[in-house]
Computed example of a mutant assay.
Amino acid sequence: MDNLTDTRADGFKLRFAEEADVSLILEFIKELAEYENLLDQVKATQETLRESIFKRRVAEVVIAEYENRPVGYVLFFHNFSTFEGLPGIYIEDLYVRPELRGKGLGKLLLSFMAELAVERNCARLEWACLDWNEPSISFYKKMGAAAMDEWTVYRVSGRALNDLANRYI
């Protein structure tokens, strides 16, 4: 499954992205950011995506197509659980264009990712969801996901990241 195109019922096709898809990946990122009211925070460029995804290989992307047109994507990377002693997969982005929502593509993408996690001997499949995004929260719960409400995500970025990096030098 890792190297093969995965064609499913109902005209959907899933395939791993290739370097030629960089502009499409950026387009999807911007569409998702616009939906999340975060478009002003997108700093990614085709060059940074090409370097990160296809040169350094720090993330992977699966493109979803319907009737041979791109309609969604999932961007993910591996993490590691010290408690399990095994890797996991973290989904950074899962996006389906509005005109295809409700047709089963989100279920297909999550199922594919679960299949990939099992194939790669991962203990977990994880992602974050904005707390106001009730349609997605409801969808994820129906798919068997459990909210990790007792955990709080912390982030250090920008100037704070540089300050922290230089604090104990």
Rank of each mutant, 00 (worst) to 15 (best):
T48I: 14
C122L: 06
G102K: 06
G72M: 05
S157W: 06
L86T: 09
I89K: 02
K103L: 12
L116H: 01
E27N: 13
V42W: 13
L110T: 09
P98V: 04
D93Y: 03
V71C: 14
R97V: 11
E119P: 00
M143G: 06
E92T: 04
R57H: 10
R167N: 06
R8H: 13
G102H: 14
A44Y: 03
E19I: 12
D2P: 10
A128K: 07
I25Q: 06
S157R: 09
Y154A: 02
N166K: 13
H78L: 05
P70L: 02
R50K: 15
L4V: 07
F16D: 05
V58N: 10
F83N: 01
S136F: 04
E126V: 09
V96G: 12
V71F: 10
K141S: 13
P87N: 15
R155L: 06
L105N: 02
Y140I: 01
A33Y: 01
I89P: 02
G144I: 07
Y35L: 11
S23G: 08
A123V: 03
S81L: 06
D40F: 11
R50I: 00
S52G: 12
E150G: 02
L130G: 08
Y73Q: 04
A160F: 09
M143Y: 08
E47A: 15
T5W: 01
G85V: 11
D6E: 13
I89D: 05
L39Y: 02
I63A: 03
A146Q: 12
K142F: 04
H78G: 02
L130M: 10
L164Y: 11
E126P: 03
E27P: 00
I63H: 02
N37K: 15
F54K: 07
L24F: 12
G144A: 05
C122D: 14
L86Q: 14
D163T: 08
R120H: 13
V61D: 00
Y168T: 10
V96H: 10
A114L: 14
P87W: 09
E119C: 04
K43Q: 13
E47L: 14
E99K: 10
S81Q: 03
M113E: 14
E126N: 08
V96Y: 11
Y154N: 08
D149H: 14
E31K: 15
V118M: 11
I29Y: 10
P135H: 07
L100P: 00
A44N: 14
G144R: 03
L49T: 11
A123N: 07
T152I: 13
L94I: 15
D21T: 07
Y154R: 07
M143I: 04
E19P: 01
L125Y: 10
